[in-house]
Design a protein around this nucleic acid. Structure first.
Lengths: 187, 187
DNA sequence: ACCTGAACACCGTTCAAGT
DNA sequence: ACCTGAACACCGTTCAAGT
């Protein structure tokens, strides 16, 4: 029994509103972080607050939709790095992931929470990020580029910590911490 | 011209309320982080919300008063470490500072912001923490225990990042990151 | 099918009125 | 000198009423 309804193309105004909301969220989150008032997002998109909630039932759903394209680009980069020199690939991945997780203030916290929370709209993408890191760690370990003690979760944690730092200080400092931690992971 | 008024001993009920508020804040912040509603703190202390504000004009003032004793203990530990073996002292300091900054969820962010914000009630203590780190880094560097590239700010950043991680995951992961970063700082 | 905005709850912050 | 709690502003979230 096919309990799934066939996909219907959304009404034109609905589609337009969703796009306006995403564009508004992009601006507002970028300027004020992921905890910015959703009312501000709705105002900027020039729709009523109820419209925002009808498209995105909660803040994470909005954030998830907003990050979708960005996520795909990151995953593609991760897959591509799977074909490059193991040690360099891992470092490049960490830098790319940090940049991603620092797109908006507070995003690193949502990502860090998202891996453990299956109900989070960001869960799947967090798991994917963790899996890519895990894979690149295994490769780098096998190639002898990093210590056998390093786990995939170490890379996930490092990347979130560095992204958090990036949102709470200057970019240079986050980069320096990254470099020390990476140096400590090498054998 | 002495524009400072002589210190007067507070009324007994006022002193008692301040203590009740601090005890309540300790519990509430520990359970729900530093962003927990101040109304909950007042309720738990069994005083009106206005009383909380009359004693502590804002959240940071309350937090600053709450951390005062804890800060003194940390600084004393820092001074004491100034007399121990340079490399071990630095590592011990980092661990002590991380534990401090992870006392409540969200505290690491307040501390990270506090060094740069002179208006923050936590500014002085943040500067002191940074200074102690700076001193221990210089000693460890002179002793050849760490790379000459390491700056005091690196330790401050690492400590906040690890404390943040501690609030967003398991303690073991924060410790692992700490170990990798410290390993990367050694020469 | 989708949009609107009023409605309710919750919290930050101030301040006039009490004791 | 200090405490109280009402008052106002702001925001999250829902939902009856419109188109």
């Amino acid at each position: 029994m096919a309990s799934t309804t066939p996909p219907r193309r959304p009404r034109a105004d609905a589609r337009r509103n969703a796009e306006r909301l995403l564009a508004a969220a992009e601006t507002v989150f970028r300027e004020h972080g992921v905890d910015a008032p959703l009312e501000h997002v709705a105002r900027r998109a020039e729709v009523a607050i109820g419209t925002l909630y009808s498209h995105f039932p909660n803040r994470r759903a909005l954030l998830g939709a907003l990050l979708h394209e960005r996520n795909e680009a990151l995953f593609a980069r991760g897959d591509q790095l799977g074909g490059e020199a193991a040690g360099d690939a891992l470092v490049a991945w960490i830098r790319a992931a940090v940049e991603h997780a620092a797109a908006y203030q507070g995003l690193a916290g949502v990502i860090a929470a998202g891996v453990d929370d299956e109900a989070s709209e960001l869960h799947a993408s967090c798991v994917r990020m963790a899996a890519i890191g895990e894979h690149l760690v295994a490769r780098a370990r096998d190639a002898g580029a990093i210590s056998p003690d390093v786990r995939g979760t170490d890379v996930f944690a490092l990347m979130n910590a560095a992204a958090w730092l990036l949102g709470h200080g200057n970019a240079e400092q986050a980069d320096r911490l990254l470099n020390f931690a990476i140096a400590g992971m090498r054998r």
